[in-house]
Amino acid sequence: MATKASRSAARLMISPAVVLLLGWMLVPLSLTIYFSFLRYNLITPGANPFAGWDNYYWFLTDPSFKAAMANTLLLVGGVLLITVVGGILFALLLDQPMWGQGIIRIMAIAPFFVMPTVSGLVWKNMFMNPVNGIFGHIAQGLGLQPLDFFSQIPLLSIILIVSWQWLPFATLILLTALQSLDQEQLEASEMDGAGSFSRFLFIMLPHMARAITVVILIQTIFLLSIFAEILVTTNGGPGVSTTNLTYLIYVSSLLQFDVGMGSAGGVIAIILANIVAIFLMRMIGKNLDA
């Protein structure tokens, strides 16, 4: 039984972590909100007058904001579609009896451990470069016009690169869920005459539902913040065709030094992420009770 003394000792042991995280959250967050109401540019020093909602107005009515929102949604949605559908199929396949499953799994999850700048540059140069990349060489070998990925289908190219990085994550989590499925349940349904498709639809898929939701939510949190892959491949271009919200805020804050505008964008990004976070937290919180 916990005594009073051990309670206060416990509080003392938690406090460094709590104080640090509280500071890490509150200080920058309140500064971002504060800056978002100022006319504040690092290139023009001097007073930073109160600007009301101006920064929000300019940020939200800027045509590049609309483009960035659309790109963010396409990027997140596209990667989710590919990784979740691909992850389910891949997990189902890996769950089958086979030889060398360990080796195959190790190969399949490797992309997740490749740092974002490396995967961006490797895909951009070694694969998608129309002259020297592998895809270019293959197209030439077949007598086709090589595709210039980053000028013809820039956003789709980034979606493909990011999907390559995240497919292992989805696969690994869905495979873990699949392996916890009760084999007897499957055998029973088989004896009752259920085909493999109905076994998948009525037993495996419902069993994986929770894991699928977790994959979607966690990936969304990370995918909203995709940055390095864009920085090293397209710099957000051509034009703003691969600029997502994160990249747009980066441009206005660290390239145009517009602290006020960047902060307004930051507040909007925080609100968007929080909408996703609420659902995720609810899922994880439920698990904590069990």
Binding site: S225, I249, A269, A273, V276, A277
Partner: peptide, 23 residues
């Protein structure tokens, strides 16, 4: 406390980029 700690992880980094950079 655990859930709150987790929620700090949900903060998009770009949302606090400027203050951290300036600090």
């Amino acid at each position: 406390v655990l859930m709150w700690m987790l929620s700090t992880k949900m903060l998009p980094p770009v949302g606090v980029l400027i203050p951290i950079y300036l600090i």
